[in-house]
Simulated assay, not measured.
Amino acid sequence: MSARPPQAAAPGTLYVLATPIGNLGDLSPRAAELLRTVSAVAAEDTRRTHKLFAHLGAAAPLLLSLPAFDERGRLEPVLARLRAGQSVALCTDAGTPGVSDPGAALVAAAWEAGVPVVPVPGPSAAVTALAASGFPADRFVFAGFLPRKGGARAAALGWLAASPATLVLYEAGNRTAETLRDLAAALGDRPALVARELTKLHEELARGPLGALADRFAGEVKGEVTLVVAPPAPGAGPAAAPEAEPLEDELRRRLAAGEPPSAVAREVARARGLVRSDVYAALERLKHGGQG
């Protein structure tokens, strides 16, 4: 009687597990139990995840690094364990994986590999701020982080201006005032909420018109910020698109900020649909005091 060939192990489970955005007391009992029992954790930053296990008073299992800058390059060790039947929890530094955090590539790869994916819901700065804003939440757009500059930022603002929904964005503290001013210019002076350091010791929530909030947060702002902007008033037409910054003004501004001319020429040409050599020539003229 011939021996049966060995059967392949059933795949393990990938748990997409939300962690606290500040207050460690927000970790759910279900999430805590899963962290204690999984074979491994795929973590955005293993140092932050070690602190989470210290809070639980539990020994950390194998921690596999899955940083934002190299998520796709780190997938295979995680997938190999899942294919071998091990359970893995996906955690980012704070909040829900894949929401302006790494994780989406791993989840997509798990689906493609036939690995069961189980969400373990919990904190999300976007939804937390939305709930605290008092603005309509039956329809909202989560825009994450806006592009920082140039045509890409203008295009994103124009797209948001055309949306009839409540808007939710993330921003770094030191760029909050600039983004509030840009939103006011693109959307009109709508009501908005600034939620800074949610659930942490220095949590701050401020609500008011975009322009007033830009003035309030014009100084040094520390920490992580979530912005919620009310939808257009009923019957209001779409806000006028912001006027494009004149080319020479943009070039002068970026040169004054110390940006390398080659990088400026490349980014401006791509954003405006121009020939890179023409933009570079305009930069050279401005550097030497000439006019376009």
Rank of each mutant, 00 (worst) to 15 (best):
R216T: 12
A206C: 11
F217A: 06
R216A: 15
A206T: 08
H202N: 15
L205R: 15
T199W: 06
R216Q: 13
L201A: 14
L213Q: 01
R216Y: 00
F217R: 01
V228N: 05
H202A: 14
E224K: 10
T199N: 09
L201E: 14
E197H: 04
E220L: 10
A218C: 08
E220Y: 14
G223E: 10
H202F: 14
K200Q: 03
T226N: 12
L213A: 04
E203H: 00
G211R: 13
L198A: 05
L210T: 05
L210D: 05
E204L: 14
P232K: 10
G208R: 01
R207F: 05
L205M: 14
R207S: 14
V228H: 03
K200I: 02
E204A: 15
R216M: 07
V225K: 07
G219P: 01
G219H: 08
V229L: 07
G211W: 00
G211I: 03
V228K: 02
L210Q: 02
A233T: 15
A218R: 13
V221E: 11
G219F: 10
V229R: 04
A214Q: 02
L198P: 03
H202T: 13
G223R: 04
P209G: 08
P232W: 08
A214T: 09
V225P: 06
L198K: 04
G219K: 06
L201R: 15
G219L: 10
G219E: 15
E220M: 07
P209R: 06
P232N: 13
P231R: 15
L210Y: 02
R216F: 00
L227Q: 05
L205P: 00
V229T: 12
L227V: 12
L213M: 08
L227P: 03
A214L: 04
V228P: 03
T226M: 09
G223D: 10
R207I: 06
A230L: 12
V229E: 01
P209F: 01
L201H: 15
E197W: 00
K200H: 06
G223Q: 10
F217S: 02
E224I: 07
D215G: 13
G223L: 12
E220N: 10
K200Y: 03
P209T: 08
G211F: 00
E224W: 09
G208D: 00
T199Q: 06
V221N: 07
T199K: 06
P231L: 11
L198E: 01
R207L: 08
E203F: 05
F217M: 08
L227R: 04
A233N: 15
L201F: 11
L227G: 05
R207N: 12
A212L: 09
V229H: 03
E197I: 00
R216S: 08
L201G: 09
F217G: 03
L205E: 05
K222E: 14
E224M: 07
A214R: 00
L227H: 04
V221S: 10
P209L: 00
A218G: 07
L227K: 03
T226Y: 11
E203L: 05
D215M: 13
V225I: 14
V225T: 12
E197P: 01
G219T: 09
